[in-house]
């Protein structure tokens, strides 16, 4: 199991639980990172690029890989500029592309996301695009040089779980890139399910930020993600859904 590493853009991670950091009190961030065993956390460039007030960067311990996101971008062009700004700020080469032209549901624009991915991958960024789970778009992102694919499970902040499960499954089957479920995960059980499906990692933010005890919930997510991963590696046995089944009803006669 120690060899089971998550590899994104040539970087190795042991933890498969990525933390979104935009909805906590910054002082809680460290607690959540520790309890969640987190090795990678997103960082909203629009929040981080700040003066002498409580700067989230000061609350993220060394050793955590920063994943700056382009939240606030409405076009590929804006996302590219935010990514470059993040690099100038010293946030490294990872970037999570988030391009949203819809202030109501906050659903991503795949077309613009593909454009931005292509430009930033060429500039040497390790590009992790947030997307609507659409196989055609996932293939375009892969061809454009993405380092992972980050389909949403449900609208951001909705805590609704794997609403797009079937489509995420298809993307998991068809792409060689790590598939990281990015939004809508509300409970540890849903994170676990995503991992069982074959997702490489899970990202959560609101589910923890809105929990009664955020430290405990961070830990619950950590364990759920680990359990799901183990189950995936172990390969789930026969799961009977809705009906019982004879062991070989159609081919049993061949043994007669």
């Amino acid at each position: 199991m120690n060899n089971d590493k998550l590899i994104i853009g040539g970087h190795e991670f042991t933890s498969r639980f990525i933390l979104g950091s935009g909805k906590f009190s910054v002082r809680d961030t460290k607690t959540v990172l520790e309890n969640g065993g987190v090795e990678m956390a997103t960082l909203s460039v629009r929040r981080a690029n700040t003066g002498d007030q409580e700067n989230i960067l000061d609350f993220i311990p060394q050793g955590i890989t920063l994943l700056p996101n382009t939240s606030g971008a409405r076009t590929a062009d804006e996302a590219v500029r935010i990514a470059r700004l993040a690099r100038e700020m010293g946030c490294g080469d990872f970037v999570k592309i988030e391009i949203i032209r819809d202030s109501k549901y906050l659903l991503p624009d795949n077309e613009e996301t593909v454009k931005a991915t292509e430009i930033l991958a060429k500039e040497g960024f390790i590009v992790m695009p947030y997307m609507m789970p659409d196989l055609a778009a996932a293939r375009k992102l892969e061809a454009a040089g993405a380092a992972s694919i980050m389909p949403l499970a449900a609208p951001i902040g909705s805590n609704k779980g794997l609403c797009t499960k079937d489509f995420i499954k298809i993307i998991c089957e068809e792409t060689d890139l790590p598939v990281i479920v990015d939004a809508g995960i509300g409970k540890p059980s849903q994170a676990c399910e995503a991992m069982e499906l074959g997702c490489a990692a899970v990202m959560a933010n609101t589910a923890i930020a809105t929990a009664g005890d955020i430290a405990l919930m961070a830990k619950a997510f950590k364990l759920a993600v680990e359990a799901g991963r183990l189950a995936y590696i172990a390969k789930t046995g026969r799961v009977l859904e809705n009906r019982g089944e004879a062991s070989s009803p159609l081919t049993g006669f061949l043994h007669d």
Binding site: F24, S25, V26, V45, R46, R47, N49, T50, G51, Q53, E54, G72, I82, L85
Partner: peptide
């Protein structure tokens, strides 16, 4: 959490 900036 007081936030002083949410735009870039």
């Amino acid at each position: 959490q007081p936030v002083f900036n949410d735009y870039v």
